[in-house]
Simulated scan of single mutants.
Amino acid sequence: MKHASKLAFLAAAGMATAGAQAAEFEVAEGTTLFLGGEVVLNYLYEKRANGNDDTKFVDDGSKVILGGERDLGNGITAYVETEFEYNMLGNNDDVKRDASILGFVGEFGEFQIGASDNVFEDLISDAVDPFENATLEQVDLTNEDSMVTYYSPDMDGFSFRLQGRHKNRDKQSAKVSLIAAAEYDFGPFALAAAFDSRGSVDSGNSDNFKSQDHVVGLAATAQLTENLEASARFAQENDQAGNDKDFTAIALVYDYGAGDLYGAAQNFDPSNGSNSTQVAAGINYEIANDVLIFAEYGDLDRKLTNGDVKTTDTDKLGVAGLIYEF
């Protein structure tokens, strides 16, 4: 997934994508406020590893997104964006802030502070992830908060991204993750490489960090025809306990006009354990501007952690969903 300028509003790495109808309000010369968001509803069937199969009708991450930008002069624009999550189905009344970003963009590139997307995920993981929900198992990466991120400008097809996460703990010294990614876009195809030191991975206990080794990855994307895109990715997750994991995946996306037909397959090779093959496929259809319906099926083994879906490992997943962006 290529990084788009924040000036396209909410179509960039760190935040959700707002629909084309996102409202803009010019409150002063050079200063604009934005309001957008999305509704995401899923009906899921899960065949779980523990035998407790289930069906669910869930809100899978509906949100309202507020933002603004200001022209600072000298070719520099500042922006701020904040997401607020809510449950469209009314299963709870909570509205909570999910992520915020402060950024500056100009000829120098783009600089962000806040909950930016992990740049390894942007260029490597997302290369073979066309799915809304049936994502194949991915490497564990540095958490996406307390980030400082730099996106370089495009230099005749070459660009790079540098990122650091500084996190404090009450009973430990602060820890830092260093993440770097680079891409060369040749036109009909692109190559990318990335590294995540995972120096500040959260343990799940608010007072502790989890000691982990680095993650490395390579990805390639090619436009085979006007309507067909292919991608491949290799990622290796290293663990200080010796439980290294290799992830080798390919994906295809076919644009049939009113939507996309897509699929992916992955070989999962842990150093301690048996190889497995994970596959998933899906189709979507744009029934109106900014209204998308989709269906996906995955024969996989991974944890669902989005929205209201928090379960044990899932062997097989079927999902039908609707996304409305505004």
Rank of each mutant, 00 (worst) to 15 (best):
D202S: 14
R97T: 13
D202A: 14
G242E: 08
A99W: 03
A13Q: 13
S200N: 07
A280I: 04
Q266L: 10
T311N: 07
G204R: 02
S177T: 00
H3M: 12
D246V: 10
T277M: 07
E144K: 07
L178M: 05
S125Y: 11
N52G: 06
E24G: 15
L261I: 12
N74M: 12
A251M: 01
V176Q: 03
R70T: 10
Q21I: 14
A295C: 14
E132C: 02
V309G: 05
A258R: 03
E296S: 04
E137D: 11
Y79I: 01
A127S: 11
R165K: 10
T248M: 09
S146L: 15
N42S: 09
L136F: 00
K167R: 02
D156A: 08
A11C: 09
K316N: 13
V201D: 07
V128K: 03
E38L: 15
A295W: 13
D255L: 00
N118M: 05
G321I: 08
A280W: 04
R233K: 11
V319M: 02
F9R: 14
A320K: 03
A49F: 14
R233P: 08
G30H: 13
L10I: 11
G321F: 02
G282N: 05
D207W: 07
A265M: 11
I250W: 01
T77N: 05
F160K: 15
N133K: 15
F294H: 05
Y151L: 14
N133A: 10
A320S: 04
G68Q: 09
A11Y: 13
S197N: 14
V216P: 13
D156I: 03
H3R: 06
V80G: 09
I124S: 01
V291G: 02
A265H: 14
G30Q: 03
S203C: 06
S231R: 01
T77K: 15
F247P: 02
D59Y: 03
K2L: 07
F104G: 05
G263V: 00
I113C: 03
E110R: 06
G109C: 04
L72C: 04
E107I: 10
L33W: 13
T248Y: 10
T277F: 01
D202R: 13
A280H: 10
E226D: 12
A219P: 08
F131C: 04
G298A: 08
T225E: 00
L322M: 02
S276V: 12
G106H: 04
E325K: 13
